[in-house]
Structure formats: structure tokens, C-alpha cells
Design a binder for these strands. Structure first.
Lengths: 347, 347
DNA sequence: ATGAAAGCGCTAACAA
DNA sequence: TTGTTAGCGCTTTCAT
């Protein structure tokens, strides 16, 4: 691999000039510029990104923390992030924490600030303390899917109004005429899906609908499957299932199929997110869509800004502490009516 | 961020010693070692990976070229690669070429050899010429899913016997009693799925089964959907569909549902790969499983070996050209019988 | 067992 | 407009 210096020698100029030509910095004469470009071409020169990173004090990569492969949402999101990142010349390093905060910290320790100049976090399965540490060391961090626009997490984030998502789902079911609705919350009671369920419940209350049954479950198809069977066993008259995520909703449809229930005739099912699978299931899943691509874009651009300003304020003493933590809010979730919901018919 | 030098000063030693302690190189006295470790701890030192990469002349990352988000197989594979890579301390940079060879080359030009010391390729949608160029510049390349163990591609690779996969699928269908089988080939005639179809056809021929109908289609659910409708229109008596990939197979099931056909009663469906979705569809998809995780592991370890030996032979003159191109063969694909195939019943 | 010094490939003041 | 001179943070001979 030829180096900058070799190119310079080949073109009869100094390394600095070549550097300037390559990055359109500083004034360079047209003739030398040509000579340099030819030399680059002739030698097949490619800049050494690690060297550049060291010299510039910044690396052209972003780290993306994902929790696992289990939920197909993450890969989908990862690709959206990759595209957004490329527009600013960033590469994305995928950091699979495997649901393990320890692994997450190991990643942060290793690459934050050295191989990558910013961190994107797709779920809260990391110690916030670790994230704060990373931030304090000078590497900006952005949370990608904060669920409560009105309760900032204390870290820069992109928020999605998941409470509204829950409301929209409930309203849709109510408008169809459902009164007995079972809810599947894809996490512990106080977990990341709480806002969705709150929105759901509040819409029910606003409509004077009877109290619904709830079941907490793993955020997986299987989790939704089991929860649905439990729910229907507890109350066979349930006509609709609301799940706080698409995966459990899909599981609910599977359960219905195994119980010989027609969807949506006997049982309506609605989820939240609108992952690819939702479009591709049979019947296609009605869901409340979260603007995934937009979120990825917002997260990357926010991170970019933070990165820039972090270099800007280098050297300044503290006092920035009090500056408010930035938050971007995505456009609101939207109901996508497909084939899994309909008017209830008695059975 | 504290540097090595600061740690050294803090511990009252030289940078070289700290470096030695940190990497267990060279002999270091037990007492100094302790002192250094304490300093590292006290300062919260983290090695700067870009700096290390420059000094060592190698970066601790691998590039993974994927073609797009459309096929959920790639993200699945990406996570498997990430896990395998981590065992050797490598980070994975995800390079989404978006089916565009031009983007692919841009990635190769930028990061191969500078930010990453090896390249993993998951599909052939890149110019082989570009890959050879990358290799020639000194960065090893490994193809992850070569489909013909008996026809080496001229590049290091992990091969999967996809011909056998096609045979297994056909045999399964034949054993169930199917004679009129429609095939969906998820690419152009000469494309990457050709081997699968060849295997399928040869098994049919070996069993003296009648010639089957074929339809080429996009390697997507929609592609399989359309192809199935076309196939059934051309010959309504078809009792089974073989698709060269799971996604089109899933599309076939959707088509059956829309046509009021029961799967597997009226129509059996079988795919190849065994992606997560195959397990999670209703009915669950019978498919020929490809050992994805194993392939990822083999690919990473082969790449690792190539990387090591490329540093080893640094300085040697040419002549290695004649050395054979290494190929790893995964364990054979295996039939996974689920609910989408069964004995044909006349209709 | 530890230190001194050179350099990886590039960028960034500052000179000329 | 171009060249000079220092590093960036780390590794690595080679001395001591």
C-alpha cells in the first residue's frame, strides 16, 4: 500500500500538499493539483484511515449498540442507521451486547473514543452509568428510541411517543366495537413498554370501556403466543388482543390459529412498530407504525451535532453541565390498518 | 482521555514498560507491573485503538459486505459473524452495498487495509475484479456462501453444498408422493441459485418424475407470491412448490392462502435456508437448513488465518500466486420437516 | 528488567 | 502557493 509520502515524492511535492489536494483544504495551484492527482492514480493510493483518525483525533465510525438478534427490529434499524451514517462519511460498527450489560461495557470501553467517535444505543439494556461514563470521557451518546417525550432520560435521545401509539391502538379497537380486550405487555411491568400500555389503558378509560386483562410476556413471538393462550383461557370472551410490540402480536395470531380461531373474525390482533414481518404475515398485521427510518436519521444527525460541538468546546472548562440535554422527537406513530383487525362477531 | 504516556509518568516508568505490561510482552518486574496496573486503574486509561492500529500496522476490525436489508437472512448472518469475530477481538464494520457494486467498491477502497484488516463477502453482487484488487493490495477476502463446493470461485471461500440442498428438498417432496411440482428459482437462470435448482432437477430425474414447471422470481416474499400464482395458473394440478429460498417459499404460502388453498393439504411448500421467519410462519415452513452459524464461524476463522499468514509472508516476493485458494466446506444442509409439507390429496 | 528513541501515515500550524 | 516542523498515541528494536 503506497503512502501519502510516496505519492508526494512521485509528484515532486511535499506530503502536506498532497494532503491538501486530497481534502480540498488550503490553496493549491491547479497544475500541482493535477500532478498530485495523477500520482495518486498511478500509485493507486488510498488514505490510511487509522492514521488519519490518529492525526485528526477522531475516527470516522459510529458504534451501534444492539441487544440481540432475537428481535428482527434491530437488524432493520441497523441498516437504516448504516445508510444515514454513510451520508456523513461514517462507518458503523455493530456492537452486539447480547442482552448483557457487561458485554456492553466492554464494547464501550474498547471502541468509544478510539475507534468510533459516537455511540448509538437502541435499547436500555445497558447501564446508564456506563453511558454517562462514556459521555464524560468525551464520546457523545444518543439513545435511539426513548419512549417518553415528556420525561427526558438525562441523555441525548430521539424520542418516540409510544404512549400515543398505545392510545391509537386502543382507539382503533374501540371504534371497531371491541370491549373485551386482552393486552400483552412485552416486558416487565415497569419496563420499556410501560408507556405503550399506559396510553392503551388511558384510551380505554376515556371511552368508559371495562378494565382489560393484562399479561406480561417476553418480547418474542413465543411470548405472545403463550400470553394469548393464557389470556383466552382466563377469559374466552376476549375479542381482541393488543400487544405492545409486533412480535408478540404475531405470536397472538399463531395462538389463534392453533385454537381454531379466525383472525380477525373471532379475534382481532394489533401490535406496535410495523416491522417488516408485520407486512408479511398472514393475515397481515394491523399495527401502529413507528417511523424507524426517520428515527435512525434523527439519531445519526443528533449524534453528529454532538460530536461536532464536543470538538468545538474542547478545552473549555466545565459549566456545560447545566446545558439542557438535547432530545429530538420523531413524527408521531401512525395506525396502519391491515387484515388482522375487524369488527367483533360473537362466538 | 489519559494516554499511555500519562500512565507511565503516573507510575514512574516509561511508556515502553506500560505497553509491555498491558500486552504481557517482554519481561517486567512484578512490582513495577503492579504499579503500572494501579496507575491504569487510577487514571481510567483505555488504549487508543486507532493509534495502536497505526503502530501495529493492522486494525482490529473486519468488514462485512451485505447487499441489503430486503432479505432478513443477512442481518441474521451479520449477528452470527459479529459473535465469531469477537472471539478474536475483532469488531465488525457493516458495509451495506445496497445491491450496488459501485457502493461496494467505495467501501472496499476506503476501509480495506486501513480500518479493517479483512473482508467478508456475503453475496456475489460485487465485482470479483474489485475483490481481487483488494486482495492484491494485501487485505484478505473471504466469500461466505459459495454454492458449489466442486467449482472453486478463485477466491477463498466457505462453500455450502446447495446442490445437495436442492436434492434433499426434491427427495422429501417425492417421498411424500408429489409428482407435479412447481419450482421457484429466486434469481436469474444462471444466478446464485442455479446449483439449488440443479440439485432439485437431478433428484427428480433420478426418480423418473415428470419434468417440473419453473418460474424465476425475485428473491423476496412478493416474488414467491407472484411466481406461485403464475405457476398454479399454468398448471392447477401442481401439488407442491419448491423454492430455492425461504422468502419466496413464504410468498408461496401467502399465495395459497389467498387462493383458498390449504397448506399442506392442497399445496405443500418447501424452501431452503431456514431463516428465523421459517420457524415463525404459520404453518411453519419445511425447509432445508443451511448451517448459518457454522458458516459464519468458518468464514471468520478462515479470514483470520489468511490475515495472519498475510503478515507472515510480508516481504516475500511473488510466487505465492500458484498456492491453492483455500476453501472451507460447511457441514451439509439438512432437511427440517415442519408443517408446510405433507402427503398430497387430490382436489 | 527498564529506558531511550525511532517511526507507523497522516494532519496542522506556521514559515517561506 | 508550497514547504517545514511537529506531533497524534502507541509499539518496537536496541541499549543500558
Amino acid at each position: 500500500m503506497p503512502t501519502l509520502t510516496e505519492v508526494a515524492r512521485h509528484a515532486g511535492v511535499t506530503p502536506a500538499t498532497v494532503s491538501n489536494v486530497l481534502r480540498n483544504r488550503g490553496r493549491v495551484g491547479e497544475t500541482t493539483r493535477q500532478r498530485v492527482l495523477e500520482a495518486v492514480e498511478a500509485l493507486g493510493y488510498r488514505p490510511h484511515l487509522a492514521a488519519r483518525a490518529l492525526a485528526e483525533g477522531r475516527a470516522p465510525t459510529l458504534a451501534l449498540m444492539v441487544s440481540s438478534i432475537a428481535n428482527p427490529f434491530y437488524p432493520e434499524f441497523a441498516l437504516a442507521v448504516e445508510r444515514a451514517a454513510r451520508t456523513s462519511g461514517h462507518f458503523v460498527i455493530i456492537c452486539n451486547t447480547n442482552e448483557d450489560p457487561h458485554t456492553g461495557r466492554a464494547y464501550l470501553d474498547q471502541i468509544a473514543g478510539t475507534l468510533s467517535e459516537g455511540v448509538l444505543v437502541t435499547n436500555a439494556n445497558l447501564d446508564f452509568a456506563d453511558l454517562h461514563t462514556t459521555e464524560a470521557r468525551g464520546t457523545p451518546v444518543v439513545l435511539c428510541m426513548w419512549e417518553r417525550p415528556h420525561e427526558p432520560p438525562g441523555l441525548p435521545c430521539v424520542a418516540v411517543d409510544f404512549r400515543l401509539a398505545g392510545e391509537l391502538a386502543a382507539t382503533h379497537l374501540l371504534e371497531l366495537g371491541h370491549r373485551r380486550i386482552g393486552a400483552i405487555v412485552g416486558s416487565k411491568a415497569s419496563g420499556i413498554h410501560a408507556a405503550r400500555y399506559e396510553g392503551f389503558v388511558s384510551a380505554l378509560r376515556a371511552a368508559d370501556a371495562p378494565k382489560n386483562r393484562v399479561k406480561h410476556a417476553l418480547d418474542t413471538i413465543q411470548g405472545g403466543y403463550d400470553a394469548t393462550r393464557a389470556l383466552l383461557e382466563a377469559d374466552p370472551k376476549i375479542t381482541a388482543i393488543f400487544a405492545t410490540n409486533d412480535l408478540p402480536a404475531l405470536g397472538a395470531m399463531h395462538a389463534a390459529a392453533d385454537l381454531g380461531l379466525n383472525v380477525p373474525g373471532d379475534l382481532s390482533v394489533i401490535g406496535i412498530t410495523d416491522i417488516q414481518l408485520a407486512r408479511e404475515s398472514r393475515p397481515a398485521l394491523t399495527t401502529v407504525a413507528v417511523p424507524t427510518v426517520e428515527v435512525a436519521g434523527l439519531a445519526v444527525s443528533l449524534l453528529r451535532e454532538l460530536i461536532e460541538s464536543s470538538y468545538g468546546q474542547a478545552g473549555k472548562t466545565a459549566g456545560q453541565e447545566t446545558a439542557c440535554v438535547p432530545m429530538r422527537i420523531s413524527s408521531p406513530p401512525e395506525l396502519v390498518v391491515r387484515a388482522s383487525t375487524g369488527v367483533p362477531r360473537s362466538r
